[in-house]
Design a protein around this nucleic acid. Structure first.
Lengths: 242, 242
DNA sequence: CGCTGAAACTGAATCCGGTTCAACATCCGC
DNA sequence: GCGGATGTTGAACCGGATTCAGTTTCAGCG
C-alpha cells in the first residue's frame, strides 16, 4: 500500500507549488497586493484547496519564510565545513549573510513582515514551531565556531557565553537588513554598499572581543581580499562575478 | 481673525487624542485587534472624522511611530548635551536606546510593523516624509559625537565616514530590538537581559574601531558602573530604580 | 438678529479580500 | 460495480477598512 505515501508526496509537492507561486507573485507585484485567490488561481486550484495547506494568509507567509530560512542554513553549513581559522570562519558567517541577501533580495522583506508580532501571532502554532526548528541549526553552527575559537586559543570569552557573543553578530546582521530595507534612511547616510559595511563592522566587533588574528577594519583591500577568498573557497558555485 | 488658528489647534489636539487612544487600545488588546471604528468610538467621533486625519490605518500607525520617534530624539538630545568624553557619550547613545525601549515597551512592536514595506507603502507619502524628518536629528546627533571624537583625538576614522561608523551602532541597536521581539529566539540562547548585552556589544564595537579610552567588555562591574553613571547624570528623572 | 454658504462631521452603505463549508468528484477496497 | 472515505470546489459569507451623500455647525454678513 504505497497509496498513502504517494498522496503525501503529492500533497507536499503541491504545497511547494503554492509557496513557489506565492513567491513569484510577490516578486511580480509586491507583498502588498498578494491575494490568496490569485495564488490558487495561478496554480489552477480552488481557494479551498489552498486552505488545506495553510490556515491563513499569515500562515503561508511564515511558511515561505521558513523555506527560505532552510536555504539560509545551507549556506551556513558550508561555512561550518570550511577549513580555515575560527576568526575567518566567523567572519564568513557574515559573508554568507551578505550572499544570501543578494541572491534572495525579497526574502528579507517577507521575513521582516512575517516575523512582526501581528503576522507571527496570526500564523498557526505548528508553523511557528517549524520556523524556530528551521533556525536552530544556524545558532548551533555559529556557537560551534565560537567554541572552536576558544579551543584553538584564538578567543578568550572571559565569562561570556558563546551565545552571548553570537547575539552581537546576529543583531548586527539583522539590524543591517532592517536599515537596508528602510528606504530613505541609508540614502541620507550616503552608505553605498551596506553589506560590505556590515562586514567591516563584524570585523570591528570581533576585534573588540579580541578574537585573533586581529584584522584592520580600515584596510579595505584586505577586507575585499578576504571576502573574495571566502566567495571562492566556500561559495564558488554561487557567485560567478567578482 | 484667530478663528483659523483655533481650528488648527483643535485639529492638532484631536489628532493627538486619536493617536493617544490608538496607543491605549493597542496596549490594552494588541496591535492585531486594533480597529479604526473602535478608535473613533472611544474618542466619541465618527469614523469619517478619523479619516480626516489619517488616510488609512497604516497611515495612523506610521504617525504613531513618528510621535514616538520624536520622544526618542529627546533622549538623544540629552546625551548630546552631556559633558563627558566622546567615547562615553557614544556609549550613552546605546544606553538611551535601552532606556527608551524600557519606557515604551510597545513602541518597537508598532515600529517594526509600521516600517515593514507593506505598511510603509500603504501610508501616505506625507506621513513617510514626516517620519524621516523626525528621525534626522538622531543621525545628526550621533554623527556629531563621532566628529567630536575625531577632533578630540580619541578616534581615528582612517578613511571611514562618521556615518559609516554610526551605521554599525544603529544596526546593532535595531537588530537587538528585532531579536528581543522575536519570541522563542533569545530564550533558546539563554540571554537574559538583551539590552545589557547590547551595551557590551557596543563597547566591543567601539573598541574594535579603536575609540579611546578603550574599555574591557568583559568587566561587568565597570559596565554597570558606567550605565548607572549615565542613568544618574543624563537620565536621572527617567529612572528612579537602580 | 436671522440668514447663508462653506466647512466639518456623521455613520450607514459599499467594497474588498480572506475564510468557510455544503455540494460535488475521486479514489480505494471489497 | 458499490459504498463510503477522502479530497476538491468555488459561491457565499463575513469582518472591517473606507467612502460619501446627507446633516450639522458656524463665521461672516446685511
Amino acid at each position: 500500500m504505497g497509496t498513502k505515501e504517494r498522496r503525501q508526496r503529492q500533497f507536499a509537492e503541491r504545497e511547494q507549488l503554492f509557496l513557489d507561486t506565492a513567491r513569484e507573485l510577490i516578486r511580480e507585484s509586491g507583498l502588498l497586493s498578494l491575494q490568496m485567490s490569485r495564488i490558487a488561481e495561478k496554480c489552477e486550484y480552488a481557494v479551498g484547496t489552498l486552505y488545506q495547506h495553510f490556515a491563513s494568509k499569515e500562515d503561508l507567509l511564515l511558511a515561505l519564510t521558513t523555506v527560505q530560512a532552510q536555504e539560509h542554513v545551507g549556506l551556513f553549513q558550508r561555512v561550518a565545513q570550511w577549513r580555515a581559522n575560527s576568526r575567518d570562519r566567523m567572519f564568513a558567517i557574515g559573508v554568507a549573510d551578505k550572499i544570501f541577501v543578494q541572491r534572495h533580495p525579497d526574502h528579507f522583506r517577507i521575513a521582516q513582515y512575517a516575523l512582526c508580532e501581528v503576522v507571527w501571532h496570526a500564523a498557526s502554532p505548528d508553523r511557528r514551531q517549524d520556523f524556530l526548528e528551521a533556525g536552530k541549526p544556524i545558532g548551533q553552527i555559529v556557537v560551534d565556531i565560537v567554541r572552536d575559537g576558544v579551543r584553538a586559543g584564538d578567543l578568550d570569552l572571559r565569562g561570556m557565553t558563546p551565545q552571548q557573543l553570537c547575539t552581537g553578530m546576529w543583531a548586527l546582521s539583522s539590524g543591517t537588513h532592517n536599515l537596508v530595507h528602510a528606504e530613505g534612511v541609508l540614502e541620507d547616510f550616503a552608505v553605498r554598499d551596506a553589506y560590505r559595511l556590515m562586514c567591516i563592522h563584524v570585523q570591528a566587533l570581533l576585534n573588540g572581543f579580541g578574537w585573533r588574528p586581529l584584522t584592520d577594519p580600515a584596510d579595505g583591500a584586505a577586507l575585499d581580499t578576504l571576502i573574495n577568498r571566502i566567495k571562492h573557497e566556500v561559495f564558488h558555485d554561487f557567485c560567478s562575478e567578482s
